[in-house]
């Protein structure tokens, strides 16, 4: 008898995404949908969509939610969670949103230990606006606004979000993962599941950073983009669990 061992998640809309071929957003959306299915919490999940390529995330995940102004997703998520404590609130953000215009909101929501889950997709570039330098752009990486490569003497070096948030007292769970190969996609799913489960249990702020491909703006094909993450990004952005108070307890 045959059975489906990898089926289309119920929490994911059948709408085709607007993402470019090989973009990591599609993989991460799918993982979130799988986790919502497995925890059976789709009906009580609220997604705060950011500004950036994933601005239309609410179209692809079959959950309720709000669209936040650029960078304000953690602040909007804070409000949602404080008035609807029984809901599961996810803030889905890219690097420009989370670390540039929204750096203040990000740090303070984490510092307050808001009972929300932030899913941070780091592709080292501004995708939606056409490939400008982001706070996470690697040293020497060429973008539209750093045509000679990022010059750290001029604009500083790439910011590491997990390490920043790990300096704060309140966050409950912090992990960095990647979606460049099968093993890491599965690890990412486990991290998302753990983060959301902690929120279901009311433990507090959880943060999952995911390194992801942006083939179009990197000027590489999808397979080479995955390789670039492995060879260039991972040494600078180590993949590890920074904090898990659930495990320490």
């Amino acid at each position: 008898m045959s059975k489906m061992t990898y089926a289309f998640p119920q929490s994911l809309s059948e709408t085709r995404t607007h993402y470019c071929a090989g973009c990591g957003h599609g993989i991460v959306h799918k993982l979130i949908a799988q986790v919502l299915d497995e925890l059976n919490i789709r009906e009580k999940t609220l997604l705060v969509a950011p500004v950036g390529c994933s601005v239309l995330a609410y179209k692809y995940l079959n959950v309720d939610g709000l669209e936040a102004a650029h960078g304000r997703a953690p602040a909007v998520a804070t409000g949602l969670k404080r008035v609807q404590k029984d809901k599961i609130v996810l803030s889905y953000q890219g690097d420009g949103d989370l670390l540039a215009i929204g750096a203040g909101e990000t740090i303070h929501a984490a510092n307050r230990g808001e009972d929300i889950t932030v899913i941070f997709l780091n592709n080292a570039i501004y995708g939606m606006t056409g490939g400008q330098m982001a706070p996470t752009t690697m040293e020497g990486q060429k973008t539209l606004t750093s045509p000679q490569g990022r010059d750290i003497a001029d604009v500083g070096s790439a910011m590491r979000a997990c390490e920043l948030i790990d300096t704060l007292e309140a966050p409950y769970y912090i992990e960095r993962c990647s979606v460049h190969d099968v093993k890491n996609v599965n690890r990412t799913k486990n991290a998302i599941k753990r983060a959301i489960k902690y929120q279901v249990e009311g433990r507090g702020y959880s943060f999952v950073e995911i390194l992801s491909m942006c083939p179009t703006n990197w000027g590489l094909d999808p397979v080479k983009s995955a390789k670039w993450i492995e060879e260039d990004m991972v040494p600078y952005y180590p993949l590890k669990k920074f904090r898990d108070k659930g495990e320490e307890a």
Partner: peptide
């Protein structure tokens, strides 16, 4: 082998796996 690797990596959810 129905390992699901292709489906896992697919950003578009275009692949599903049926195990016999």
């Amino acid at each position: 082998t129905a390992c699901t690797f292709c489906a896992t990596m697919c950003p578009e959810n275009a692949i599903q796996i049926r195990r016999f």
